[in-house]
Design a protein around this nucleic acid. Structure first.
Lengths: 220, 220, 220, 220
DNA sequence: TATGAATGAGAATTCATTCAT
DNA sequence: AATGAATGAATTCTCATTCAT
């Protein structure tokens, strides 16, 4: 009788203020997480508020307590997913001083993530976008690599178009999920070639080993 | 007076049937042409039927006599625009036996067309697509060039992702319109590099002269 | 060159006036006949003008040359069908001096007709009506029979409600088409009983032989 | 002071959930009750959603929160009215062991109700139907009476056609409202005669006294 | 007379948003 | 903070009717 299993941790907190704020963050997270599969199913325009309300099991009114528009929710969902990706990728590459290697390793991991996490992949496909945060990182590495003289291409806009265009379109094909890491290498090699990276340098960058995917492996 | 030569054999169908068909084709064309700028402004999902109705200066009912859904109209508009592009490109390219040169010349002209025809460019940007007919042509050339051993890339899906991804994304940037034919060359060079074409071969393919653009003479 | 095959007999007539009038009657009849199955399928309210236009293979404009409203066409169709029924029934009963026998024989034949002619039956079922002309005849016979003292019922409205109510509702049941003439006898017997006709008189009236049905028999 | 009896156990659901359900039932009832005169005026097909919206003083959107189609509302209205009638008739009749007497008393009261309650009568007339629930009851009594050997008629379908056909058509006539209970007797007598009930039995069944109508005391 | 494209008023339907509880 | 009934503007869709040819 001294032990009470926490089946409803929400109600455990005693002070309104504290519990309220925690609760608020939790509800927000609930809405976002429930929204991701909804966006993954429909495109970014089609889903209606009721879809999110039903998916999250909340009321219409509650939705408006957290998000004013569908777009806001979409942005939040993209940010959340971006965070996830970044959290997966950044630790792996942040120690690497060479921007080209940072970029190509990150791109390989991004492709792998989009391929192995079906929800993330579908989400990206529906939304046809890479996610703002991930783009920021990629842009920075690209820019640095360009400054360091790794590319023949000198136009930053074109460099981005190449990187994101090839990435998005190659993830769109139904085959994307097959092929595994080998295809990831091909895709990134294509991007680097398009950017005009020296072939030897490409081989070097792609030879960097990555941590084995922990997705779908659940080491716990 | 007993014999009357039939100068109007078309009278086989009741006259309204004949003249009506001409009229019907005209109205259909009117709706499609008026719809293109509408799609160019909004994306493919946002515009409402009333937008098309007003743009074409027709009545709501008339719209439904021709198209049941917005999507149907979008498809028709894409087909029409595709036809236009094809009509511009095919004559220039069809005599060329080398599929790589066919592909790269066509890609350069496509880029040029999308760049110089603001409507076409905006339309493509809004819709984020290349148009089915144009894709068919490109696919055929790509496939032949791949079979002929011009590419390192061996996966047709990836080849398409590269070609269309780089093309679409590089047309999306605001800078696309500046840069002129020089940027077109850069873009197509990037595509060919990504496909793994031999550098000398790339130079050769891109050195093929194209007819000077007759669209929008901008000598500067 | 002297011989021209007459593939279009409509155009053969020489005087506009003559051919026009014949043609007009024919088109009207065409529209009505084509409309009957349409009414039989939908109820009396649901069908739209386009249904009739398509069924008759004419143009919208032509429809309005003959009928201003759907209701007008419905009335014309009912009249046409009534005429058919009357034409079947009247010759059989008009020689009969006894109004009760006239009424019951007519009712039996009406039931038979509605049962054997699927179109007529469905039409009646959809429209839930007996047809004005047939009602006129029935009313006259009922009235005369009432005056002659055949009924206990003395209220003409009630007499009609009985006759038409039982007839319409018993034709509505899916079983109506089975049962044949035997069920017709039962139905008419029920009507006569409800009207308060003397049982012996009922037996007499129902013993009158009717001409064997020529529908679905096609003696030719 | 340590013990507080829970007088409001309903708080198990969030308060709006509970009070909302009461409100929802009220609005539903409001829509239905407002719809009855609308159906009574137009037929069952003609009225448009706006008629109901205006009659109930609600918004278009609210209508769709409760009913998807006009037909759904019609069914609900019929059910409600049926319940009312049943509630009037059943208590009077349920103690009676003889199914024939149950049937004829119920029929007399039904006729009276349809006659005295103008709305109910008009509604029935417009819709040309008896209402599913009332039909269920009548059917049960008819069937039992038929099994007990009260009828010459042996076909249940025909028995129903007689009962409902005469009832509906005799309520349709403008005279129906006059005549009062005397006409009710005549109508039910006609039905019983048509069913082939023994005349003495008819007299017996119709001699059963009914509670004097409490609807709309119109001594004239 | 026949034709059928065009019309536009009216009816149906959706859905983001508000607000009393 | 959460609820969900109510709202009504915006949108889609239908269809009887007209009219130039």
């Amino acid at each position: 009788m001294t032990y009470e299993p926490k089946t409803k941790p929400k109600r455990v907190m005693h002070h309104r203020t504290v519990s309220g704020q925690a609760q608020k963050a939790k509800t927000r997270e609930l809405i976002i997480q429930s929204a991701i599969p909804v966006f993954a199913k429909h495109g970014p325009d089609n889903p209606v508020i009721d879809d999110f309300v039903q998916a999250a099991g909340i009321s219409r009114g509650t939705f408006y307590n957290y998000f004013q528009t569908t777009r806001e929710l979409l942005d939040a969902a993209m940010a959340t997913l971006s965070d996830e990706v970044i959290a997966t990728i950044v630790p792996v590459v942040e120690g690497e001083p060479n921007p080209l290697i940072r970029f190509s390793s990150a791109a390989r991991m991004y492709y792998r993530k989009a391929t192995l996490d079906p929800l993330f992949g579908q989400f990206l496909g529906s939304v046809s976008s890479v996610g703002a945060l991930a783009m920021e990182h990629a842009r920075a590495d690209l820019q640095e690599a360009m400054k360091a003289g790794f590319f023949k291409i000198q136009d930053m806009d074109l460099a981005e178009a190449i990187a994101f265009g090839v990435m998005v379109f190659s993830l769109r094909t139904p085959k994307a999920r097959q092929g595994g890491d080998a295809r990831a290498l091909e895709v990134v090699r294509a991007i680097l070639s398009a950017l005009g990276v020296d072939p030897a340098m490409i081989d070097l960058a792609l030879s960097v080993p990555l941590p084995s995917s922990d997705l779908r492996e659940d080491p716990i």
